[in-house]
Nucleic acid binder design. Structure first.
Length: 935
RNA sequence: GCCCAGGUGGCGGAAUUGGUAGACGCGCUGGAUUCAAAAUCCAGUUCCGCGAGGAGUGCGGGUUCGAUUCCCGCCCUGGGUACCA
């Protein structure tokens, strides 16, 4: 009987769907385990073979955890708001919702064919009003909170208001960007508008006129991490700076916690490092420099207070507020010109000219706080207004940029490092001895650092301070296809719509483009006003600014919905809460999260931020969303190329003479690099009369290149045709077999036969030569037991280490050995089947029933434990053969000679722990050069 | 520049509390079966050498009885980040 994967896979996929096999409930009797994939954006192209890589790994792990007796939550959903659907809508007029629904249907079909064990009853879609209702709610909770630095958590804004009413804001300890100090009396005298204006400086989400990365081509604002080298991440359009009224998220308030809690996470070092860099904590000190007329003082931030005696000038950002005041008449024209040119520079220009040193002396001086010497004041656009204080003390001997600047403008360089030559460049190492520095002289750099901060603080001209690179995240997008804000404007005051009136449903619009007068697309909506009497959205014509007000026209960014979706899965259909507290407490957080590393600083940082916020308010009991994170590598495409020569003929690879034009050819016409010339000719009109220069054996061999999968390179491999040809189980195992999960690798179907053959061999273990089911019921042979137990041991090890690739190899070894032994023993096959079921669920369900078990029961109730106790029988004696391998540690002094070591290896009797957590078992190591011996 | 990860046959990749390098699969070579093909099975396959033998895990050193594994210095590839004071 042949292995008929199509019949088998259809049968079991239907069975699983009909019986809701993978539906989970909260069960306190079982330990929980939460396995999550980064949910996909449902694009029009459908899934390609790269998508399922992570899903297969997580599915294997989820099924493995179920075998071990865990109650496993393994859901799937869609990040269904996003730009491509909107752009498609702009082009075709088709509503993004329609496109999105079609794409989701296609994705679902493809996912189902892979045999994933998702609990679809918990599906979420970020564009579903029942979902974004709660995204809007979280936004309103952020609006209602501020960050209290005393309790070090988010607190209700009402608490802050009552403090203002009693004491004003002078003694408030809160993260804010409020520049004025007021008393209680002043506060109480303020109008509602003024009060809200103040509160905006404290709220965790707030409106601010901020410089934003404006992308004219996309008609939208982009986050810092969506801009790469001055170009938009999506599409690569130029991005310019523009000031706009935007919603922002005060993520900065959580900077320290986001940094510290990284240490509690089981994430790859590289991702943690990326987040640390992004948060960019630097410890240092602020220092006030008085101007020589004693009228003003300039605050700088430095990480090297120990070099304060090396200061030879100050540099201010051109945008610094004191520049105009401090510029002398003599220099005002030059300074104005410099400010003018640097303001015209886009981010892109600045980056292109990193080596280009520019600056301008402004004519006035500051006084060095310790030496009393005059130091020149300069402006230079290498100093950023947005970081630190917007001014730096320049120490050319200790900072390369300052050195370059000083050298370029011929400013004196003072050396304060003992025995260091700085004629060729700055000395930037944080070690050595300070000299020529008054009270810091002959101290080490580290000691001087402490001493300098002390002196600065004693003098009252500054203090030790910590700076973060992390900036608040802009939260407004000028888009249609996103979550509307639950906000209306009451006489200009942003007002939140109460939770019981949510969701605010995205309105219909005629056009998805910005309006003529530059309003976001929601400006096209005719029914987009808030009636505060009836609490509903009404027609714009009813707007009277007494009871009916305009609604916010921006929508939320893509990361809004994805910042909390892992919580919604726990309780996807709850209409009364974003997640019920008892469910949140049962599932806690994600135990294993699998997805691409491109989200290192975006999604993963924002999710952590929102999780901490929701924790602060007591809605959930965990501080971090994802305990363990695995980043699957990208699967690259393997493009096939044909070569056209000058005479318009197509030249096979070994006949190339150079100068031929390579042309991408659809990979479906190519098998093992051999081109199907007929298919190629029929591909396009232009190839119809193609002529070929063939190899000597009359084939056409294509060239190839490894690059990103893309439609335009005709190298996209969808899973569908492979499932059709080999079955889902083969594809699942093959994707795992390709290599380590975390590594990126080229897609190549060459080896898929090997995996397919393995499954066919496994299938044949159950049947005799005539194709009849043939299972023996006797006791298994020692050889068969040994093979099985070896496999159990290794494959469990592989699963625990997420080495799914070696897991597949070990299955192959096991089945090859059982085939050689002609093993058809029921006990052996039963256990092997359980072992294989996470990898190849369809074929194992089928064989499970062949073994006489109830249909579907391998999932998994009958075997609550999948562990050594269950699988390895206690009484089994391991046969240690001459060729067997047992690992043991040889305890000998390092000085022992080779002969001595060999002698010890040959004769030693060793005690071996053959399985963890069991009594040690004595085995005698057989003479021979055996060092690495495994059971 | 800085940070992180990695460099092993023709290919994807195994093997690290230091212990027979190249598991497993692909590909290739030869053979069996077949009218033939597919499929299947058997043998071989790191390189050099007819051979005995020698070389070999990016390069150069070091520690060790023994190094793909540990240490030092380089080179290269991939990812991240960038005038952050």
């Amino acid at each position: 009987m042949e292995y008929s994967f199509r019949t088998i896979e259809d049968k079991w996929q239907n069975f699983w769907a009909k019986n809701a096999t993978f539906k989970v409930e909260e069960q306190s009797s079982k330990p929980k385990y939460y396995v999550l994939d980064m949910f996909p954006y449902p694009s029009g192209a459908g899934l390609h073979v790269g998508h399922p890589l992570g899903y297969i790994a997580s599915d294997i792990y989820a099924r493995y955890k179920r075998l071990q007796g865990f109650n496993v939550l393994h859901p799937m959903g869609y990040d269904s708001f996003g730009l491509p659907a909107e752009q498609y809508a702009i082009q075709t007029g088709q509503h993004p919702e329609t496109t999105t629904k079609e794409n989701i249907a296609r994705y679902r079909q493809q996912l189902d064919k892979m045999g994933f064990s998702f609990d679809w009853s918990k599906e979420v879609r970020t564009s579903d009003p029942n979902y974004y209702k709660w995204t809007q709610w979280i936004f309103s909770e952020l609006f209602d909170c501020y960050y209290d630095t005393t309790s070090d958590k988010a607190e209700r804004i009402s608490k802050l208001i009552s403090t203002f009413e009693k004491d004003g804001n002078a003694f408030v300890k809160a993260v804010n960007d409020c520049e004025i100090i007021f008393s209680a009396t002043e506060w109480n005298a303020m109008s509602a508008t003024e009060k809200e204006g103040i509160l905006q400086h404290y709220r965790l989400t707030y409106l601010a006129d901020s410089w934003v990365n404006w992308c004219p081509a996309l008609g939208t604002v982009l986050a810092n991490d969506e801009v790469i080298n001055g170009l938009s991440e999506r599409g690569g359009h130029p991005v310019e700076q523009k000031k706009m009224r935007q919603w922002s998220m005060r993520i900065k308030a959580y900077g320290e916690r986001l940094l510290n809690d990284l240490n509690t996470l089981d994430w790859s070092e590289s991702i943690k490092e990326q987040q640390r860099n992004w948060i960019g904590k630097s410890k240092g000190c602020s220092v006030q420099f008085e101007t020589d007329d004693k009228q003003h003082s300039i605050e700088v931030f430095t990480t090297r207070p120990d070099t304060i005696f090396g200061v030879s000038f100050l540099v201010l950002a051109p945008e610094h507020p004191l520049v105009k005041t401090l510029t002398t008449d003599e220099y005002s024209q030059k300074v104005d010109e410099y400010i003018q040119t640097s303001s015209l520079k886009t981010e892109r220009d600045r980056q292109a000219n990193v080596k280009n040193i520019t600056g301008q002396f402004i004519g006035s001086y500051a006084i060095h706080p310790f030496t009393g010497e005059k130091v020149e004041l300069w402006i230079g656009d290498y100093v950023l207004a947005s970081y630190g204080t917007g001014a730096v003390m320049a120490v050319p001997c200790g900072d390369q940029r300052d050195w370059d600047f000083a050298t370029h403008f011929k400013i004196d360089i003072k050396n304060i490092f003992e025995n260091v030559d700085i004629s060729e460049g700055a000395y930037t190492a944080k070690e050595g001895t300070i000299t020529d520095s008054d009270f810091l002289t002959s101290l080490s750099v580290a000691d001087a650092m402490t001493k300098a901060i002390e002196a600065i603080e004693t003098k009252g001209i500054g203090q030790g301070k910590t700076n973060y690179r992390l900036r608040d995240a802009v939260f407004s997008r000028q888009r249609y296809w996103g979550e509307p804000f639950p906000v209306y404007y009451k006489n200009g005051i942003p007002t939140i719509i109460e939770a019981q009136h949510l969701p605010i449903i995205l309105p219909e619009v005629e056009k998805y483009l910005p309006t003529e007068d530059g309003q976001p697309p929601l400006g096209n909506a005719t029914d987009w006003a808030w009636d505060t009497v009836n609490n509903k959205v009404v027609s714009n014509t009813k707007m009277d600014n007494i009871t009916v007000f305009p609604l916010e026209l921006n929508t939320m960014p893509g990361w809004a919905g994805s910042s909390w979706y892992f919580l919604r899965y726990m309780d996807a259909n709850n209409e009364n809460a974003f997640v019920a507290k008892e469910k949140a407490n049962y599932w806690e957080n994600v135990d294993l999260y699998i997805g691409g590393s491109e989200h290192a600083t975006g999604h993963l940082l924002y999710s952590r931020f929102w999780t901490k916020f929701l924790f602060d308010l007591g809605y959930i009991g965990v501080k971090e969303p994802f305990k363990k994170l695995i980043n699957q590598g990208m699967i690259l495409g393997r493009s096939s190329l044909v070569y056209r020569n000058a005479e318009n003929k197509y030249v096979s690879k070994s006949k190339l003479e150079g100068g031929e034009t390579p042309i991408h050819v659809d990979i479906n016409f190519v098998h093992n690099d051999i081109l199907d010339t007929t298919a190629f000719k029929n591909w396009r009109e232009e190839y119809k009369n193609a002529e070929f220069i063939l190899e000597d054996n009359s084939t056409y061999i294509c060239g190839h290149e490894v690059e990103k999968m893309s439609k335009s390179k005709y190298n996209v491999q969808t899973p569908d045709e492979l499932v059709e040809k080999f079955g889902a189980d083969t594809l699942r195992m093959y994707e795992m077999f390709l290599g380590p999960l975390e590594q990126s690798k080229p897609w190549d179907t060459k080896g898929i036969n090997g995996v397919h053959n393995f499954l066919r061999k496994y299938w044949r273990l159950f049947f005799d030569a005539e194709g009849n089911l043939n299972l023996s019921d006797g006791e298994p042979t020692k050889d068969a037991l040994k093979t099985l137990h070896k496999a159990i041991h290794k494959i469990q090890d592989d699963l625990n280490k997420f080495s799914f690739n070696t897991g597949v190899s070990n299955f192959m070894i096991c089945v090859n050995e059982l085939t050689d032994q002609k093993c058809n023993n029921r006990q052996i096959l039963e256990k092997l089947t359980i072992l294989l079921s996470p990898y190849a669920p369809h074929i194992t369900e089928e064989t499970w029933t062949l073994l006489g078990h109830e249909a579907g029961s391998v999932n998994y109730a009958k075997f609550p434990k999948f562990n050594p106790e269950f699988l390895v029988s206690d009484n089994f004696e391991y046969p240690i053969s001459f060729n067997g391998k047992v690992r043991f540690k040889l305890e000998m002094p390092n000085s022992a000679s080779k002969e001595e070591v060999e002698k010890a290896v040959m004769t030693n009797e060793k005690t071996i722990h053959y399985l963890e957590g069991k009594e040690p078992k004595k085995v005698i190591v057989v003479p021979g050069r055996i060092v690495n011996i495994v059971l």
